[in-house]
Design a protein around this nucleic acid. Structure first.
Lengths: 108, 108
DNA sequence: CGTATAAGTAAACTATGGTTGACCTTTAAT
DNA sequence: ATTAAAGGTCAACCATAGTTTACTTATACG
């Protein structure tokens, strides 16, 4: 047999990124970092994931940047695909005031 | 002190709904139920919340029905206002296959 | 019952998120 | 230094989520 022109042979080069501390309070940026970490850990490129889920690369990038102006549906699709999920937490001290919340980190 | 003419007097009539089991796996419907439960528990109407957050009533209703075709931003705004939040969970057994997941419940 | 308020739905319009395709930058391997 | 593939951005267009307004349906309570 002739030498396969090497389908592209070389293992992909997907730079691993570190998983954020999932025990810290939720923020869209932390979610974004977790998504990127999972994706790169699985050696998948942005195009791999966007094609698998039928979403565009720009949209995936928005999600991985923590942009919250995206469809909830798309966030959930990506999370499920990469093996990430939510758990619901209820702050039983319902203080819906205007002051700073318990954690003053930004989620938006 | 005189009796307050009762600004509209009657306590509002907001039917309480039950809080779902937050320990069960995430699904948009479970989130929706948690949101409705928190809102009614705080005796807030759909209009109260939609006005406070500058989102329309139809959109809030979509969220409280578990419709995932809404902006992630709007979901987060509602959750924060009502004292609900996410925590991130990573299924460390990254099996992104096509078969049924660990839980075959629908999140969409 | 009749009334008042909350919940939910529908239609037309507007705003904006998503897509496509091109393009540029960055990274890593040879 | 080249090259190849990944990451990232941009603009124009398209699809659809969101809004507004109005109407209908439910649920309390006098």
């Amino acid at each position: 047999m002739s030498e396969l022109p090497a389908k592209k042979t070389l293992g992909r080069v997907v730079k691993r990124t570190e998983m954020p501390d999932l025990s810290k309070p939720f923020s869209s940026v932390r979610l974004a970092k977790a998504i990127t970490s999972k994706r790169t850990g699985m050696k998948l490129t942005l195009v791999d994931v966007s094609q698998a889920l039928n979403i565009s690369k720009p949209t995936l990038i928005k999600i991985e940047k923590g942009d919250v102006n995206v469809q909830f549906f798309n966030v959930l699709k990506v999370m499920e695909y990469l093996g990430l999920s939510f758990s619901l937490v209820s702050d039983d001290a319902s203080h819906h005031n205007n002051s700073a919340e318990v954690s003053d980190e930004q989620w938006y």
